[in-house]
Amino acid sequence: MIVLLPPSETKRPGGDGPALALDAMSFALLRDTREELVGELAELAADRPASRKALGISASQDAEIDRNAALRTAPTLPAIHRYTGVLYDALDVESLHGAAAGRAQSRLAVVSALFGLIRAGDRIPAYRLSAGSKLPGRPTLAARWKPALEPVLAELAENELVVDLRSGSYAALGKVPDAVTVDVVAEHADGRRTTVSHFNKAHKGRLARALATTRAEPADAAAVAAVARRAGMRVERRGDHLTVVVAA
């Protein structure tokens, strides 16, 4: 089983690993697109106004541009430790040890706007690039990633059950055939249901942790739902789609 996570805009700074080595990253078929985007993003960093526009940031966030300028030389961290924020706080991979940590390393993967599909242990620098970013004079990131990423995701899905926890903009970078998909809804006292927005990430992080650490080997959506329920989550299933129901 592979659990696909979205990245986060916030990244842990620094690192204790060597500089970015694209040849050492998982899914070698994505190397050319990674190389193009790293080069373009580092070059764009020399033009701060253009970088701000492309990345959707303000002058107060120019440190993000500095990170992009140093993409090829900055220290690295494993991807699963680089990303921070609500989902990754709930996942709390730093607290895992022994066999649970090993299962998380093998099961967790991230779909990044800069690197495409990466495994938990792939070492990456801090950077700023979101799925909705638009590099000057270039097609959208979805248009650039789909031709390279979808064949890799399809091959992955042939061999593993894929549980797709990505948000919409990152799911648009490449579809996964036959993936188990998940949404989160809040149920009110009167039975009315509404979409969960901010805390959606926290609940998906909890589910990711349950799936990453379970001794079970889920083979279908029903088995994924069973793992979630054992973790105390209320889950409904319709085919390959799961709905996590939380109290409003």
Rank of each mutant, 00 (worst) to 15 (best):
A79D: 01
A154I: 11
S8A: 15
T10W: 00
T33K: 15
L44W: 08
L211S: 10
D16F: 04
A126I: 12
D62K: 14
A219Y: 03
D190G: 11
H188I: 06
H203R: 13
M1P: 09
G132C: 05
T194E: 14
K134N: 14
L156Y: 03
G239H: 10
R72V: 13
A69F: 06
R67C: 10
P49A: 12
D66E: 15
L22W: 02
G116K: 08
P13T: 06
L91A: 00
T33E: 14
E43Y: 01
I80N: 07
L165I: 01
V3C: 07
S8Q: 01
Y170L: 01
D220K: 04
G132M: 08
L242E: 05
A231W: 04
R107S: 04
A104V: 06
G121C: 13
V235F: 08
T73K: 15
A171N: 01
R206T: 13
A113I: 04
T181W: 04
A179C: 05
P136A: 09
N68W: 11
G102P: 06
D16I: 01
P151W: 03
E158I: 00
L156W: 01
E160N: 09
T33I: 13
L173M: 15
A131K: 05
T140Q: 05
V93L: 00
A248L: 13
T195Y: 14
V38F: 10
D16T: 14
R138L: 07
S60I: 07
R119V: 13
L77K: 02
R67N: 13
R193N: 07
R192S: 15
Y170R: 02
S95M: 06
A148V: 15
L117Y: 04
S167T: 03
P177S: 09
D92Y: 01
T10L: 08
L117E: 12
E160P: 01
A45F: 06
A148M: 08
T195F: 15
E36Y: 10
G137N: 08
H241V: 05
V180D: 03
A46P: 02
R123W: 04
M25E: 04
P177F: 02
A223Q: 10
A228P: 08
